[in-house]
Design a protein around this nucleic acid. Structure first.
Lengths: 340, 340
DNA sequence: CTGAAAGCGCTAACAC
DNA sequence: GTGTTAGCGCTTTCAG
């Protein structure tokens, strides 16, 4: 089976390659009749243009890259979908990369993009990422980048976030109103801006309610599952155990639930829990989990739209305002105040 | 900033382009000294090869495509991760496409791959897909394809599945042993082979236990959420309501839970539920959900390994045996038999 | 061991 | 309105 390309079409039609090329692109310089002939034959022979040749020549690939730390989290799954919807609509293809929270991997992946492999990048930073030289390097090479969710503070790159500081505040305030007095804050990385924001919100809420902040109650869990469990057990069973938990990451809330079951601690009686989460099953958990629900899909969509904005009219690279799409607090049974 | 390519390197080193190219590929025809010089300069100037040029010339792209119906399901999220791990390890890039259960979209996406955009494809078919001409067309053009999870019966394409028939049987048998007598089977598509397999397992189990199969108890839910709810409510509140449910798709189990809460039906007292699912939170639901847990990650990994096997030694395209990775039944409270 | 040359398939000046 | 030409950046014969 001979692969069919512009040359095939051209000679079959007695036209030049360039005429066929222009006809297929519906160029105004080609007569309607010729276009018709070209289109028809192309359809008959099922011509599919070679994207590598086109990308090489045009110096743009119609491909974007999405780089995220993990996918086992409902947030990223939803965000990815938001991105994919827009990309498909725009006729772009989407390369996906997971960094597994590793800065090295992130750097390697991004470095490759110097080559012109992709026309733009949407990235949520790894938990290890403490500087973004590898990201700004791309920007400088003219490859548009949009940071979303796990952004980096103090950069002029376009950012899509949610109101992490405020949400951290509201989550904590909610627990305080439910009469918690010893509130723990759980995270998995302390280098991330979203974690710091959420934690700052937590601290602000404590301050505003004249509650002390105790370092022992602010836990950054290690990567390894066994260690996580040990540390958490220590927290929950210690003499100064908390009566409320703000889980800044879905995973830590799940861990809390698991341990509470194991340790026979009852939620919300002995411990109230609220989590940043997009779990569809949050209302169905035992007990149903109070959440700060992030607009994951919308954030993905916004990131993609912003990126295509930059790709399509690179010229006017005006400073884009930070786009902040608010999260919502949904109280459920896990933070319910019980009579008695 | 001038983009640096082979020509840049070559002239800077006083070598020819082809020598530099070969050196970078560590070809044996190049002297060690020359290689050293080339490598060093390449590193200094931060040379990154242009993949489009390379793909065009070599006629392979080092890119694979993953086409799946949805991503909002924990199965596909995990499977994707399994694929990505292998791809990254093999130095391949991964394009991701969602079909949103649409055959048309699936066809459009696959048609584009005729162009040589990707070196191989891993696909789980859309719910609408009733023939796979568009898939075999790729195979015939020499592009390896692996079907996973939602496969098509009666094809010689390599297949990665789990034991759907047996699992359907076991799930149903489990409910029967828990003294259910009117067991419903919920699905979202009846054209899919996995659905048919699971349903056949369900039917076999009924037969083996001398229970009648009632058409009214086999529900294929429509795509639209509102309709789903109406139909399910009718099922659950009707005069011939079931006392057990086999949910062949995670989504339908979640729906069942939601409606039971709304309708004040208690699980497992009035209704027992078991679901095909990979929900991490299944043990934490209220009540904890009995599941048939599919080896999602392993299936993704197996699919990717199989694909790379085909890509890397296309020649020996021996008939690959169907790979079946078994699921496991995990009984939890939602099917518990209660005293009294 | 190194280099010259051809060309992958497509696009974009620039002629005519 | 159509064709000619010259590459995009890389790989790969084939000479030397």
């Amino acid at each position: 089976m001979q692969t069919i390309n512009l040359k095939t079409l051209a000679s079959a039609l007695g036209l030049s390659v360039s005429t066929v090329s222009k006809a297929l692109q519906d160029s105004h310089e080609i007569s309607p009749e010729t276009k018709q002939r070209v289109w028809q034959l192309a359809r008959e022979l099922d011509y599919v243009p070679n994207p590598h040749a086109s990308s090489l020549r045009r110096k743009r690939s119609k491909i974007i890259a999405v780089v995220i730390p993990e996918v086992a989290d409902s947030f990223f799954t939803l965000a990815m979908k938001g991105i994919e919807v827009v990309a498909q609509q725009k006729g772009y293809h989407t390369l996906i990369y997971l960094t597994y929270e590793s800065l090295t991997k992130e750097q390697t992946i991004l470095h490759d993009f110097q080559s012109g492999r992709v026309d733009g990048l949407i990235i949520s930073l790894s938990g290890q990422t403490t500087h973004i030289d590898h990201v700004t390097a791309l920007e400088r090479k003219g490859i548009p980048v949009v940071l979303f969710d796990r952004i980096f503070e103090g950069t002029t790159l376009p950012l899509i976030t949610t109101n992490d500081l405020e949400s951290g505040y509201l989550a904590t305030q909610h627990l305080i109103r439910q009469q918690c007095r010893r509130i723990a804050f759980l995270s998995v990385s302390d280098s991330l801006s979203i974690t710091r924001q959420r934690q700052q919100g937590y601290l602000n809420a404590l301050t505003d309610s004249h509650l002390p902040s105790e370092p022992d109650l602010m836990l950054t869990l290690p990567a390894h599952a066994a260690d996580q469990e040990a540390i958490m057990t220590q927290l929950l069973t210690g003499p100064k155990a908390p009566d409320g938990i703000v889980a800044s990451v879905e995973k830590t809330a799940i861990l809390t639930y698991q341990l509470c079951e194991k340790l026979h601690l009852s939620i919300p009686e002995q411990l109230k829990v609220i989590s940043f989460s997009n779990l569809e099953t949050a209302p169905l958990l035992n007990p149903s989990l109070s959440t700060i629900t992030q607009p994951a899909f919308d954030m993905g969509e916004a990131a993609a739209r912003t990126l295509f904005g930059l790709i399509e009219r690179k010229s006017l690279r005006t400073m884009l305002p930070l786009q902040c799409i608010p999260s919502v607090l949904i109280p459920r049974r896990s933070t319910q105040l019980l009579a008695g």
